[in-house]
Design a protein around this nucleic acid. Sequence first.
DNA 1: TACCCTAATATTGTCAACAATCGGACGACA
DNA 2: TGTCGTCCGATTGTTGACAATATTAGGGTA
Lengths: 252, 252
Amino acid sequence: MPDFNDQLGQQGVTLADRVFARLRQAIVEGEIPSGTKISEPELAGEYGISRGPLRDAIGRLEACHLVERRPNVGARVVSLTQEDLLELYLLREALEGMAARLAAERMSGRDIDELRKLLKQHQERAELQEGIAYFQTEGDLDFHYRIIKASGNARLIKLLCDDLYHLMRMYRFQFGMASSRALIAFREHGHIVEAIADRDPEMAELIMRRHIRSSRINVELLFDEKAPKGAKATPAIRSAGAGNSAGAPPPL
Amino acid sequence: MPDFNDQLGQQGVTLADRVFARLRQAIVEGEIPSGTKISEPELAGEYGISRGPLRDAIGRLEACHLVERRPNVGARVVSLTQEDLLELYLLREALEGMAARLAAERMSGRDIDELRKLLKQHQERAELQEGIAYFQTEGDLDFHYRIIKASGNARLIKLLCDDLYHLMRMYRFQFGMASSRALIAFREHGHIVEAIADRDPEMAELIMRRHIRSSRINVELLFDEKAPKGAKATPAIRSAGAGNSAGAPPPL
DNA sequence: TACCCTAATATTGTCAACAATCGGACGACA
DNA sequence: TGTCGTCCGATTGTTGACAATATTAGGGTA
């Protein structure tokens, strides 16, 4: 259970912080479906707060690319498209490739050991429950998360962990991403750790890039399978839990 | 004269848009020096607006990493450090490398011709006024700008052109970046265009990455020269035009 | 019946006042 | 004299009301 961006427990200090964290979770996990219009008076009423901090929170969501805003019209939750997901993978290929390179240069031996342990846990879990599910959803992100952190590049870390990873999580919640590739991906993770342990930046970057590129191609194939030709903007598949519009959320 | 992010003329629709654009320019160009505290009442008074849209604008500046905010304390203009600049170069190496790769795959023949023309203009200008200055400041950014746009990856474009390039501009305004490397860089630009025209993505990415890496190393050397040992956080060098604190800015 | 123009409605953008929190100055005490 | 505690001032966070804009429903006309 990785804790992206300290969203757990430690709730932000200010009202806008808390409502931002909560809205982000609701959007990422699909509680507020893609394409939904964000009504300021309505949400303010539900959360029992004023429109001021709510607008602040919406602004931050926009900065994360989780909602889109048009002046004098309002904000909508982004609608996920196949095209955008593929663009996201290209970004990750470039950025996480660099992260792996830097990690190979700077990661401490101690952290490398920790990373190895993490992989062992993943293996056990995968063997145990055969539920490649866990591995490919949270476990995979956790692995990547650690390598990014190990890059030591604050800007890279912020970009990947604060923005892009919430988007990736959102895509995983909305599209299934069942991944017939889990075992292969797991082995690739092993190779990446080896390259890092060998202090071979070139190799670490190369393998990480191929790893992410393979994921992208896999996703591309899945899309072509489901929608042989057109289907240029497939919206969310799962309706994701019937939004609790009745019954206000617990107090902040 | 590239027009990063449509900041010219076409002023935003809403008040917050306009004050955001104006503040960003003031910060990037050093009119508001690094490290300055952003006082909401004061600025609101100067611009003749309320604190609401101003706070909105400050929030967007924070999303661009141009100001840093602490709850209940306030916002300050980011203080530029050598370390952060080097991190920025690493990001650019990864991202613009990918942009060059994509451009080689997708750039239209027409746009490639345009790019060649641009280089010719740069050459003439450089020869004419011998003022490598222009080339290395705005011209260089313009060249990179076009390749990024040609990548066709909306997310990549947004990231580089909306956020990172304003930061690069800010560093160029604050630190000199005189660049003894202008001529070499110009030739490298030529090689990049060739690789794109050859539809050789691997090569285009490789050269772009080396190009940016060379810039980074050059900057690193400059820093080591000026501050042989410590000097871990060199603040702005130029005081940049005596900030017009007296005399309110023209109306929005 | 289809299209366009007008007006009502609801939403967003903006403003000014209130409450909560932080930083610094002053003074008391060891 | 140095350190801690307290108070005050100022700034930020939040609120509710006002103004401006976009959407939608309705009626009139070709």
